[in-house]
Design a protein around this nucleic acid. Structure first.
Lengths: 204, 204
DNA sequence: GGATTTACTAAACAGTGTTCATTATATTTG
DNA sequence: CAAATATAATGAACACTGTTTAGTAAATCC
């Protein structure tokens, strides 16, 4: 029965068409300007149609978030390639910062906003971030195995490194470094310096 | 002319009545449920009246944020009292984490949400956080002067410590630690452990 | 070809932030 | 004190928002 397969394919095409439009609007116009009606208008469908493919806006945001994480993974795969775990750790961190700087709206959706997390069903856990977290986790496992960093527990190390990176990026994204006595154009450099300093600190 | 003074006082009373209602609703009902209409209803005034005292919602949020920072300062003043700068640094960090855990909605408004930052006028900078940041800055200045931590630059140290603390708290507030392979009830303990571990790392 | 399932949408609902003409109150002036 | 004026507050509207539902058009099945 090829007809039901085509239907399923068309349904999937519609789903990707929606999230691609949503993602594009998110990155160009920003979160504020992105409403269900705007997305519907962009793909030339009625707003009500979107609800045949996603149960509410949170679920849609969740799917956009998923795609954003897939982009972060790609960035890791491209830029964090060193076989030396310490070098790779540095690559991961700088890649993470670069990603946040390049796509602040996406970063907000991935790590800061509460909205997309609402669509997580009961007894189900958030797994959009797992793959990219595994990249960090594996790297730190290797670092610890070889005794390169001052951590015993891999999980503690992963959470610490991630928190430091996220803290720097998110405070920048939410403009909380402004008016803190540092020149605004030098913030980016300061973030890189802070990351490098931290990586020096955790070295054995 | 006592009559204009009374007018000014009444105006100020109304302003504080508004932000107190807003703050209370923020902490009890959460951000989602807090609208201009809800706040107006709470203080038994018309929604339009709020606009005679605050030009828009962002400005109102900004004022609520200011009060939240004043509460954080109070917490610092009460809990970070040690004369030993390293001990005081630890007190500051743990106090910060405790504050975020106790008032996640407020934390979101203070450090994560973009909204209140929109009301900052051009050529004016954000100063709601300066006082509490100074507490950290002063502490770290003393630490560096006495050669207690592995930092040369006070600003770099302040941004690093703040970012680590904020990273841990904000990832928790935005539920990003969920589904990361750690028991949800142990997240709080993990955060404390990560802070303590970091403080050990930066010690000379 | 007629019945039925599927895909889509127009219209409405309840809510939001915000503005403005109008009303009620308080103050100042003649 | 009464009239004129300045101040304070609001009702109603505007342009949005996410979401639901009844109804329509098209594709599929028998």
């Amino acid at each position: 029965m090829g007809i039901s397969e085509r239907k399923a394919r068309e349904k999937q095409e519609m789903r990707t068409r929606i999230i691609e439009a949503a993602t594009a609007m998110f990155m160009s116009e920003g979160y504020e300007k992105t409403s269900i009606r705007n997305i519907a208008e962009k793909i030339e469908y009625s707003p009500a149609t979107l609800y045949l493919y996603y149960k509410d806006k949170d679920e849609l945001l969740y799917e956009v978030q998923k795609q954003a994480f897939s982009q972060l993974e790609d960035a890791f795969a491209k830029e964090a390639t060193s076989t030396d775990p310490l070098t790779r750790l540095s690559q991961i961190c700088h890649c993470y910062v670069k990603f946040g700087k390049a796509h602040p709206e996406m970063y907000e959706l991935m790590f800061m906003m509460r909205a997309p997390m609402n669509s997580i069903k009961e007894n189900e856990s958030w797994d959009n971030n797992t793959d990219s977290f595994v990249v960090l986790h594996n790297c730190l496992t290797e670092c610890i195995e070889k005794g390169l960093i001052r951590f015993d527990d891999v999980m503690l190390a992963a959470f610490s490194v991630w928190s430091m990176g996220h803290g720097l990026v998110s405070l920048d994204v939410s403009c909380r470094f402004q008016g803190m006595g540092i020149d605004n154009t030098h913030v980016e450099q300061m973030i890189v310096t802070a990351i490098d300093h931290y990586l020096q600190l955790i070295k054995t």
